[in-house]
Amino acid sequence: TGIVNVSSSLNVRSSASTSSKVIGSLSGNTKVTIVGEEGAFYKIEYKGSHGYVAKEYI
């Protein structure tokens, strides 16, 4: 489990790349469930599926 550490919002992406499609966003202080790691990204549970967020903001 981690907490989103941004002042505005954090993009949730379809894969572990900054060039991948943005599938949603999370507000600061949102609790997320981390299910894996891939490079500079965490794989998280997101809306019944999975998404990826940059580690530096969790």
Rank of each mutant, 00 (worst) to 15 (best):
T33L: 08
Y42G: 00
A40F: 08
S17K: 07
V53K: 00
L10H: 04
I58N: 03
Y57Q: 09
T30H: 07
L10P: 11
K43M: 09
Y46K: 00
S19W: 10
G51F: 02
E45A: 10
V4T: 08
E56W: 08
S8Q: 14
Y46W: 14
V6I: 13
S17F: 07
I23Q: 03
I34E: 00
S7E: 12
G36T: 05
K43V: 11
G2W: 08
V32E: 00
Y57F: 14
G48C: 07
V35K: 06
T18H: 15
I44D: 00
A54L: 15
Y52V: 01
L26W: 02
K55C: 04
K47L: 14
T30F: 07
S17N: 13
I44T: 00
T1Y: 13
I23P: 00
I34G: 00
Y46N: 01
S19H: 08
K55G: 02
N11S: 14
F41V: 02
K55E: 02
G51P: 00
N29H: 13
V12W: 01
I3K: 06
S17E: 07
S9I: 11
S9Y: 14
K31T: 14
G28T: 09
G39C: 05
A16M: 04
S49E: 11
Y42Q: 01
G2E: 04
K47Y: 10
S19C: 10
L26T: 02
S17Q: 08
R13I: 08
S8F: 15
I23T: 03
S14T: 09
Y46I: 04
S9R: 14
L26A: 02
T1P: 09
T30C: 08
V4F: 04
S27G: 12
G51Q: 02
G28C: 08
A40W: 08
N5T: 11
V22S: 06
F41P: 00
T33P: 03
I44Y: 00
N11L: 15
E56M: 10
G28Y: 14
I34T: 02
V53G: 02
V53M: 02
V12F: 02
T30Y: 06
E38D: 12
G48L: 07
K43A: 06
S9P: 11
E45Q: 08
I44W: 00
N5Y: 06
S20N: 03
K47G: 12
H50W: 12
K43H: 05
N29V: 06
T1I: 14
T30S: 15
E45T: 09
S8K: 12
K21I: 11
N5L: 08
N11W: 13
S20W: 06
K47P: 02
A40D: 15
G24D: 03
T33W: 10
S19Q: 15
I58C: 03
Y46P: 00
G24P: 00
E45R: 09
I58V: 10
V35Q: 06
G51D: 00
T30W: 06
R13S: 09
K21M: 12
V12Y: 02
Y46V: 03
V35N: 04
A40V: 11
S14W: 09
V12L: 03
K55A: 04
S49F: 10
Y46H: 05
R13L: 15
E37P: 03
Y42L: 06
S9W: 14
K47C: 09
G39Q: 06
L26I: 11
S20F: 07
T18D: 15
E38Q: 09
S7D: 13
G48F: 06
K43S: 04
L26E: 01
L10G: 04
I23V: 07
S19A: 13
V6C: 12
E45M: 13
T18V: 13
I23D: 01
V22E: 04
S14R: 12
K21P: 15
V6D: 06
Y46S: 01
G39A: 07
Y46A: 01
H50A: 08
Y57P: 03
K43W: 04
K31I: 15
K31R: 13
A40C: 10
H50S: 07
V4P: 04
T18C: 13
T1L: 12
L10T: 11
I23A: 02
S17H: 09
I3P: 04
R13F: 15
N11E: 15
S19E: 11
A16Q: 03
T30I: 08
G28N: 14
V32T: 02
T18G: 13
K55F: 03
T33I: 14
N11V: 15
G39W: 04
S25V: 15
V4I: 09
L10A: 13
S15D: 11
V6T: 12
T18F: 15
S15Q: 14
T18M: 12
G28P: 15
N29Q: 12
S25Q: 15
T33G: 04
Y57M: 10
E37L: 08
I44V: 06
T18W: 14
Y46T: 02
I3M: 10
T1H: 13
L26F: 03
K31C: 10
V6W: 06
Y42D: 01
S7M: 11
S8C: 11
Y46E: 01
S20M: 03
Y57R: 05
R13W: 15
S8D: 13
S49H: 10
K31L: 13
A40H: 11
S15H: 14
G36S: 08
K31V: 15
G28A: 14
A40L: 13
E56V: 11
N11K: 13
N5V: 12
A16L: 04
K31H: 11
A54P: 14
S8T: 15
T33D: 07
G51R: 02
L26M: 05
V12D: 01
T1V: 15
T33R: 11
K55W: 03
G2F: 07
G48H: 07
I58H: 02
E37V: 10
G51I: 01
H50T: 11
S17C: 08
E38Y: 09
Y42K: 01
I3Q: 08
T30A: 13
S17Y: 07
T33H: 10
A16W: 04
G51Y: 03
G24W: 05
V35I: 14
G51A: 10
V22P: 06
E56C: 08
K55P: 00
I3L: 10
A54H: 10
I58F: 05
H50G: 04
V32G: 00
K47M: 15
A54I: 13
S15K: 11
